[in-house]
């Protein structure tokens, strides 16, 4: 008798789990608002990339044209395929020679978007940007200088 009860328990338990599964997919089927597909070229104007999207490496500048890069070169050392070149210069601040960034050269054409430069930057000067339409007609346009012209290191670098 116990076997028979187990048998029918099996059947109804099985049906219950099947219905649970079908409920989930059925709910997705009738909720078009949850569709994640982007109709890309058509919705180009309104397309919002996710915050975590790794489009390209950028160096954020504040409104006073200041960035946080000290030119230490840690990002260059950590880059696995040499996409970053840091060219530093010596500046005289308060009668003291101080190392500063001259050009932060970034080769987008070689970058694998591993994010090691951003992770290891001690002053959090680098970040990932959301731009992804990188196609250009000339390869040289993919080599970018990340610090803007005439930009300086921000004064409040401490934290």
């Amino acid at each position: 008798m116990k076997v028979v009860v187990e048998y029918f328990k099996d059947i109804f338990g099985g049906i219950k789990t099947l219905i649970t599964g079908m409920k989930v997919t059925g709910k997705y089927f009738v909720s078009p608002s949850e569709i994640v597909t982007q109709q890309y070229p058509e919705n180009r104007e309104t397309l919002q990339m996710f915050d975590r999207f790794k489009g390209e490496v950028i160096m954020p500048h504040n409104d006073k044209n200041e960035h946080k890069c000290t030119g230490c070169g840690i990002c260059e050392m950590n880059c696995p395929n040499g996409s970053i070149e840091v060219i530093s210069k010596w500046e005289i601040v308060d009668d003291k020679k101080k190392k500063a960034i001259d050009k932060h050269i970034y080769h987008l054409s070689m970058c694998t978007f591993c994010g090691l430069c951003i992770k290891t930057c001690p002053s959090k000067a680098l970040a990932f940007g959301q731009a992804f339409e990188h196609s250009v007609f000339d390869r040289s346009q993919l080599t970018k200088i990340l610090n803007k012209p005439n930009s300086v290191v921000t004064k409040d670098l401490k934290e």
Binding site: T25, Y28, F29, P32, E34, I35, V36, T37, Q39
Partner: peptide, 13 residues
Amino acid sequence: KVCAFIQNRLGPM
């Protein structure tokens, strides 16, 4: 189409 909607996609468009 049915498969796409069940998987939160659009399918052929």
